[in-house]
Write a protein that binds this DNA or RNA. Structure first.
Lengths: 106, 106
DNA sequence: ACGATATTCCGAAGAATATCGGAATATAGA
DNA sequence: TCTATATTCCGATATTCTTCGGAATATCGT
């Protein structure tokens, strides 16, 4: 099993650490594996098209979102497994002390 | 049980979404509940004092870190329960689709 | 090829961030 | 009170981010 490193995690948290992008990502996650066209994200979140494109690219750059073209429309999907890997990192590295005691067990 | 909201989560992810701050936070988490003096974090992470102070305040502002004075030294502690609440938010809102299916179950 | 639709790229303005060295502040001990 | 130590605040710079409107690009159906 591949374990994420600190730098990559920071890059992903930075990507999610913006209210607009977190909302975009949540929208994609809720949409399920089939994803959503960019235009649909646009109308659901009310983000300007160019701004949305910019934010999507930030999420794509850290592999939390993927795009797939179908004709003229681009479908965006949340990358569930990479998101899970990120959460796993946080649980493992940011939630347990040196003795491996988890913070929710305290 | 209090559930975090999207805005607060974004603010926390932004705080952790910087390689230097993530390293600082990890250092505090590993140190355990007793925490560490600022000077100790400084020598462990090699961050310049003023920079470290700046970053610590960002973490404190989102309640992921707490400080407590003992004489001339300030002890910093990771706030485990708020970190856990943040991870819970991610698991709940960013890792399960509309039917509540979790991404690690896929 | 043309028109309609979907999306991205360009350029730009303003705001926020990361980082540092050095000055200022607070506390303890002699 | 004086000195030493611990930490924060100040000011400054270079970089990056957010956001937008409009132009450019890609694809489809006719």
């Amino acid at each position: 099993m591949w374990l994420m490193d600190s730098t990559e995690t920071a890059r992903r948290l930075e990507a999610l650490g913006n209210a607009t992008r977190l909302e975009i990502f949540r929208t994609l996650v809720r949409a399920g594996p089939d994803g959503l066209p960019v235009g649909e994200i646009q109308s659901r979140t009310g983000t300007a098209r160019s701004t949305l494109s910019h934010h999507l690219h930030k999420l794509i750059a850290v592999d939390l979102v993927r795009q797939e073209r179908d004709g003229t429309t681009l479908y965006c999907h949340a990358n569930y497994s990479e998101m899970q890997a990120t959460i796993d990192y946080l649980t493992r590295e940011c939630c347990a002390d040196a003795r491996g005691r988890s913070c929710d067990a305290a």
